[in-house]
Write a protein that binds this DNA or RNA. Structure first.
Lengths: 211, 211, 211, 211
DNA sequence: GATGAATGAGTCTTCATTCAT
DNA sequence: CATGAATGAAGACTCATTCAT
């Protein structure tokens, strides 16, 4: 870094070593991700992660202080992806048009969509929520951000809204959509996602707007 | 229970033993409940359960095949209690009156209320949902029953409803109320429960009924 | 204890179980003692202790919270034995006679003698002195007691003593005899113990008494 | 050192490399010394030594076959320093005068003084005495030398001495002073060093000389 | 000379479960 | 019915040492 970034082919010297190291690290993260996803967090041993990454336990502990640390890393990456996907539907472009239902549809679709991102990891986040403060904190932050985004949206639509207590409303909406999405992902819903989406759209649009 | 209570003086000799046995079993269940609630499932050892029940591990395994079994038992009892409380608000008496908001209020209150029942156990149900099929099955059944109850209610209110796809609607309502209740219990909601309840009532009544 | 001690043959009921347990515990302590003595503390693993005691690691941890705990126990037993032996020479009976050299001889002999008690353990005490606070504390206490004993003796001999600062003198004497004894035990002394004893006796008697 | 210092301008080209190499080696030794002193031998890892020396583990093993080797080197340096300091008090200049107590005072002061040199290292020597033969050998040699020095001194003072078995006496004196010094360093002595020194001087002078 | 990534045998420790009494 | 001592497989983590670059 101190030497600045020279023209492309100039500094291959040290790179290989660092590149190898980065690769190893990535192999470990990937292995952990696979195993956490398939066997769950607790059932995955550090030894098995190393083995799957074709490395040794020692190498694992070279890159991570302990098992939790890999999970935290994986989950940070995942949260960004998941949240990015979920926020997709809140982009103003969906809301500038006249059709409000379309906006709500996009909101719901986005959240539902985000549930397809690393479902195994989401499952683990779910079960470790109370046990791992780092996870709780980050998931709570996600909730906060989601609520803020909805509040922002409400400002845009201000004159058409019928709700008074917007803060509570935003929270209720986020929680509702999120919960339904969770049910769908978990596939515990015996009802077709499309029907659910329709009803959810009705639920929210009737709540927010005069018919 | 199935054998009925024999007339007072009939078989007094055998009774004590069975009674004592039942008592031991109950002490164990109680001890497990306390410990699961305070320390979580995995952090509770069979030895500690036995110790707290003032029994020996051997006795524990006399009544239960393994650790999971106590949890299953506890959770069956808990589900009944929790569910009973939640269903309270669906009793027809709240719905026969003219004021529909009152009924919805009762529904929400019931579910919220049910979250106060053995919160530690509910937390465990939450985290073991994917790991313990017995738990998944029973919680899913609870969902089903809830949905059915709401559907039944809808039949009663048939003419006043504006929703078409009642099955999906019932599911959406149950999931929504349940999710909000969960957020409240977990105390992860930065917003006052009362405000949430108000909004939730609005949400659902606008969804179900014409203004 | 509460029930008092009944006539010999009365309470054999529970005894067997407890006796077995005590035996196991003793086997473990003995095994640990042997291994610590032959291989040193750090080189001895909990597994090897269990194996030598013909028990399992689990059993080891049934009786001791960790490795240090066995060492502490062993060393408490040892300290009593060692110290008892060392204090032997301070008994008044050796000092009531006219010959003061005889008393000093007994003092030295006692300490030297005490070095034959569990030399391997003493070696460990020596090397763990700084690392294990429990050991430091107890050894320091031993020193204190030794010094006190010598001070007591000085009171007895009060009129014949030439030293003024008795407290410091007692400390110096204890430390000196102890150090010499250590050198002899460690067998690092190229000089015959008897010659050392003679010189040590001279050293101390000239220090304490007029010729 | 063996090759001598070449005349200034002779081989300046090669010198830097060797000088750098020597520097690296020294940095490693210094780092090890610091860490051993502050954390103890076992708690210091080869990696941490390298890190502190701003070198890599590989470099460490370039200069030393294993961890023990650095300790041996450090301790050789230390022994020279410590011993040099301790022997200070045996210089004839202190003994040529008439006042014998002054000589003995110097002897004691020297040894006490030497305990201030690298106390952390001395502590390690203490605990590794039995584990590391190299250490045992060298410390025993130190003892031998000390005893020899005292014997030499005795020859000088021959006519004033009252002791017969000089060899044993020298050993006893060395061990005594050394032990007291150790007690003082370890700060386990509840008594003021000055008082101890006075008594120690009395002890030895009464032993060696007629009053 | 120097690097530092990689290794893996070896430690301590836990806990559900069994079984002789 | 009840006991509780005993088990041992399994898991997280460490660190001296090697070796390809």
């Amino acid at each position: 870094m101190a030497s600045g970034k020279p023209s492309a082919a100039a500094t291959p010297l040290r790179q290989p070593q660092q590149a190898r190291s980065r690769k190893t690290r990535e192999k470990i993260v990937q292995a952990a991700e696979d195993l956490f996803e398939s066997k769950g967090y607790e059932a995955t041993t550090t030894n098995s992660i190393a083995r799957r990454a074709r490395a040794s336990v020692g190498t694992f502990y070279l890159y991570f202080p302990d098992k939790r640390a890999v999970l935290t890393e994986i989950f940070h990456k995942a949260v960004d992806q998941i949240f990015g996907r979920a926020m997709e539907g809140l982009k103003p472009e969906y809301w500038e048009k006249a059709d409000l239902r379309e906006g709500i549809g996009a909101l719901i679709a986005g959240v539902l969509d985000s549930r397809d991102v690393r479902p195994g990891i989401q499952r683990i986040l779910h079960e470790r929520y109370f046990k791992d403060p780092a996870i709780k904190t980050a998931m709570d932050a996600m909730l906060q951000e989601g609520v803020q985004a909805i509040l922002g949206l409400m400002d845009t639509l201000s004159d058409r809204l019928r709700v008074r207590d917007r803060e509570a409303a935003a929270f209720v909406i986020y929680a509702t959509v999120d919960a339904l999405a969770a049910r769908v992902m978990i596939a515990e819903s015996p009802i077709d996602p499309k029907r659910l989406t329709t009803q959810l759209t009705d639920l929210i649009s009737r709540y927010l707007f005069e018919d």
